[in-house]
Nucleic acid binder design. Sequence first.
DNA 1: CCTACCGATCGGTAGG
DNA 2: CCTACCGATCGGTAGG
Lengths: 188, 188
Amino acid sequence: MTTRSREDVVQAAGRLFALRGFHGTSMRDLGDELGLLGSSLYSHVESKEQLLVEVIQRGAVLFQSLADEVSAGGGAPEKKVADLVRGHAAIITSHQDMSATFLNEARFLPDRERRAIVDMRDRYESTVRGLISEAIGNGPFRDQDPALATIMALSVLNALTRWFRADGRQSAEEIAEAMVEFIIEGLK
Amino acid sequence: MTTRSREDVVQAAGRLFALRGFHGTSMRDLGDELGLLGSSLYSHVESKEQLLVEVIQRGAVLFQSLADEVSAGGGAPEKKVADLVRGHAAIITSHQDMSATFLNEARFLPDRERRAIVDMRDRYESTVRGLISEAIGNGPFRDQDPALATIMALSVLNALTRWFRADGRQSAEEIAEAMVEFIIEGLK
DNA sequence: CCTACCGATCGGTAGG
DNA sequence: CCTACCGATCGGTAGG
């Protein structure tokens, strides 16, 4: 067992925060996970809150990047929505702990950081709503409230944090395709 | 300010557990909410865990009753799915705290109670899967994996615990109808 | 329902 | 990364 890096600590924190929640995880729990004492963690990080901040900010950045990518990418509105669904599913299935912590524990962030994360989440949602609105205006999707349509689509995707298992019956890609179909047919 | 009943304590516990989580809520917080000391709560309840058990069991019962009701009720498979969607949405929008606690905090239940709740949740999901399978077999829904279809439908509904506001732009009924359409079109 | 309290655990620090 | 520790807070109890 070699020495642990700050990166290892952040990873393990993501895992435990996702599993037991921020308030259900003590620094001693986190130490156990890494094979050292709770107090020893403080040579790697400043505070427990800072760990939460770091895990969640990394999650937020992933979704932000996806939104930028899909917005800049080409194709018809319907295709952009499909691309976003695939990308969103891929983020969660390959960073499940970070995503779960981002979605469930952000309310426990210190005020300033919480506001910043809520802003990022709002911006992401706005981008998705923009894509869906285009597809409503251009025809493929039926006339409906874009805000509600967006929430419903993201609900399907975000629930992946709760039930996806990498060793499950279906691969992440198969699941993503089923979600593309469900969401797009659901909006037509 | 009159004296508090056990019922008041359970209600307030549901509210705080939904808002800040089980581990993020102290008995002193709960006392504050009710205008008394944390230690005074113990004349109403045996333990903090027992409060969690009570809130969550009440939630589980609501969904169980809905499943029984819809199963016994008549109509084509597609109509039953629509009824279930409406009923599930109604439970969450009219018992949001209980539902959120049921869905998010059950992992913190003592072992025995947690297993019982997981069983109830599994039975509920089985019932829904049965209805969806019927609608796949009978034609209205396209051929697809019923388990995944069920998870996706319930994901849309359960996310209501996260965003629904009684004073929002749309009524609970309007939202429920939009979900009926989204889910049923998504499965066709 | 409060007063007065308990042992356990929490996040965190000093010093090595 | 550990030893040794700190004050604060936790769930909970005895007695009134």
